[in-house]
């Protein structure tokens, strides 16, 4: 059973979703704001179930076939010209993909398919059968690869493209909501157990104030907050430095960790200027 761990705070709803996916061996599709721990979730499941983690990061050029296997015809051709011995066995030129790895692992593996929406619009459709039956056919050698133990598949998406219905139907779905303040405190506590209480409190104040500014292009999320806190701790920033700096009046110190976009920084400078002028 998957449970909230020492370093990863999962809500009860997330636990239920993960456990359902594990129990029924169906893929779990996780969506949510960037930086709310979608990718980390897979690592955490792997750790808590003591299972190996296989990560497949998707890019816009990734093809579904690459996850199964690739036949390297070019290097075989080249070997043929050079008269190499291994050219006679086609299996030498079949490169295993991540799905193959996950299917044939001796332990039940956790397979992370990260940012599936980055790929071509047909990509999820091409994996339907493979993920459903957990088997596929290798045409070159005529063998069928079947999962000995169905891996736990975690799929993340940033909503850049709509996923096809047929694909969605086979998944469990969970939308990671942005954590409430209380959960956020737990998360901070889990990551930095020895952080000064006052610093954490003030930093969270500033952080939530920033998130309230509506026009930000990219709102800072959990991962940004954690980075920022780490910087604050390294700099040994006194809590007062944050307290006097109401986020509406000035840009918080070390803002680079929170604001990732020069337009957002400009916006902040402008807001700060306006607020100061009003005083």
């Amino acid at each position: 059973m998957f449970k909230t761990g020492k370093d990863y705070i999962a809500t009860r709803e997330l636990e239920v979703a993960v456990n359902a996916a594990v129990a029924l061996s169906r893929p779990l599709l996780v969506k949510g704001e960037p930086g709310t721990g979608k990718t980390v979730l897979a690592q955490e499941i792997a750790r808590s179930l003591d299972a190996p983690l296989i990560e497949w990061h998707i890019k816009s050029t990734t093809k579904a076939q690459q996850g199964l296997y690739e036949y390297d015809a070019v290097s075989r051709l080249r070997d043929g010209q050079l008269g190499e011995e291994r050219v006679h066995d086609i299996r030498n030129y079949i490169r295993r993909g991540k799905l193959w790895e996950a299917f044939t692992h001796e332990k039940r593996a956790v397979l992370l398919i990260d940012e599936i929406d980055k790929a071509d619009i047909e990509f999820p459709n091409d994996l339907l059968l493979e993920l459903d039956r957990m088997e596929f056919h290798v045409y070159e050698t005529g063998e069928t690869i079947r999962a000995t133990q169905r891996p736990i598949v975690i799929i993340t998406s940033n909503n850049e493209k709509e996923l096809p219905d047929a694909f969605l139907r086979r998944c469990f779905f969970h939308f990671i909501r942005f954590p409430e303040r209380e959960t956020m405190e737990q998360i901070v506590q889990a990551h930095y157990p020895d952080i000064r209480k006052d610093l954490a409190r003030e930093a969270l104040n500033v952080f939530f104030q920033i998130r309230e500014v509506g026009e930000l292009k990219k709102k800072p999320a959990t991962s940004e907050l954690l980075d920022w806190l780490k910087l604050l701790m390294i700099e040994d920033m006194p809590a007062e430095a944050l307290r006097t700096q109401d986020a509406k009046v000035a840009i918080p110190p070390l803002y680079g960790a929170l604001l990732k976009n020069e337009q957002d920084v400009h916006l902040f400078e402008r807001l700060a200027f306006l607020n100061r002028a009003r005083r």
């Binding site: 009860r12 709803e13 979703a17 359902a20 029924l24 599709l29 139907r169 469990f172 969970h174």
Partner: peptide
Amino acid sequence: ALMGAMKAGVAGYSIEDFYFLARATLVKD
């Protein structure tokens, strides 16, 4: 899938867990 998960005892006997489970199974967007 929801029925299967219920049978597998994912939700236990809590209405809240059942709600979470039903949501994860039936809502995809």
